[in-house]
Design a protein around this nucleic acid. Structure first.
Lengths: 234, 234
DNA sequence: TTGCGACGAATTGTTCAACAAAACGCACCC
DNA sequence: GGGTGCGTTTTGTTGAACAATTCGTCGCAA
């Protein structure tokens, strides 16, 4: 995926769209490209090339950069430019620090509503696992955690979680992804739903905390192996 | 506090400062003015006037707006402009929804470190209360919650809490602030520190959840009285 | 008086062109 | 081979322009 290809596809899409609030639209486009992995972690986002590809002015593009920067999707080095965020080991620790607070809290203290949506996501993940469809399984796992936090009913926690999961995707994009990574967690998720349905929220929260600890250790270990793309760009 | 006065003081400060990254600096200035209550909730932020007062270009100002918008300090109505955020009753409910997750979680699951800083803040709050210094007491109370969440050691939760407290200041700025509002909570904070020191984190978390519920109800009730500034501008 | 539509003024959304300052790349020299 | 200096590129910021939208206000009719 040469950056040339990315720019070309952007050019295509840009022509076809009417934009009401351009900078918002631009931010969404870039967010999408990054989430899809078409713009890899650490990649530079040069103003001139993107401006041309998106067919917007540099000012509008820079406004979009400001939003993405606030979302931590993108990092800014003064006078050097904007880069796709590239999580370090410390970032991983930070991510899991947050998750170990938010996710068990959500299990414990969310208004106890129906768990059918969670069960459905688990079924999807199992299906994908059996079909050997790793991306679908990874997606379903992410969706599971998103749905879990959504139970809290807080817009702000939702968007925090969305950001965190976006950063998780960057983490996965940064390392040679072992297909077997996501598999064990499908069953953990299933168990969590069971506990929740049985009214054993405290046990579910404990399992979740444990599970997150395991995942963190696994990712940190993977950081140290050669497969992990070096630290900062340059 | 005429908006004229605000602009004049901005003009003064603008001249004296060297700005390395101007848009960041502009965002910080505005954030400060809003936090201080010099720009009231619902106030319009006209581009031309601010541009002139800050001595920056409209583009730079708009980039700062993008940052503040992402922080929810400021609201954008397309083609109408940017306004200081003006929390509604729903926003208050949302704020406390988040706080009831984050703060008890922080009490329960933060690495158990020294509580000396918390105790110190409680002493400050008591001092301010005795001196009848309401703003200082309100500040100390806010600082207490900030310090509590800081124990989690997560940069992201820190900034979430910082945003939440900023929005709380907007809530207080929106209503005729009863000086007696903050007082009872000083002693609750003290009790929480005691429980924490005694290793009774679960009790502390429970007290906190209860306390937050009380505060929310009180604020929601205050919303309904005439003192509260109407809903959205226009 | 009150309500309503229209017109002109002000403001926003977006683009373009320019320039200083900083970082980058590269040939050059020790 | 490893620093050094210089021209080139990119970023940070400004200023001006213009279409689109909203705002304010005036006049008119019920």
């Amino acid at each position: 995926m040469t950056s040339e290809g990315v720019l070309a596809s952007l050019r295509l899409e840009a022509g076809a769209t009417k934009h009401a609030e351009t900078s918002t639209w631009v931010a969404a486009q870039l967010r999408q490209l990054i989430a899809d992995g078409q713009l890899a972690p650490g990649a530079k986002l040069p103003e001139e090339a993107l401006r041309e590809a998106l067919g917007v002015s540099r000012n509008t593009l820079r406004e979009a950069f400001a939003t993405l920067h606030a979302e931590r999707v993108v990092v800014r080095f003064p006078n050097r430019g904007v880069f796709v965020a590239h999580p370090t080991a410390d970032d991983i620790r930070e991510i899991y620090r947050v998750r170990r607070f938010v996710e068990p809290a959500s299990l414990l203290w969310s208004p106890s509503g129906p768990t059918e949506d969670l069960a459905e996501i688990v079924r999807e993940a199992r299906g994908a696992a059996e079909a050997g469809d790793v991306p679908a399984m990874a997606n379903a796992n992410q969706e599971f955690h998103r749905a879990l936090v959504a139970r809290a009913g807080s817009e702000r926690l939702d968007s925090l979680m969305k950001q965190i999961l976006a950063e998780m995707r960057l983490v996965f994009a940064s390392m040679a992804s072992d297909p077997r990574f996501h598999a064990p967690y499908v069953e953990d998720n299933a168990r969590i739903v069971e506990l929740l349905e049985a009214g054993r929220a405290a046990d579910a929260a404990e399992l979740m905390a444990d599970y997150l600890g395991r995942a963190e250790r696994q990712l940190l270990a993977a950081c140290k192996v050669p497969g992990y793309l070096g630290s900062r760009p340059r």
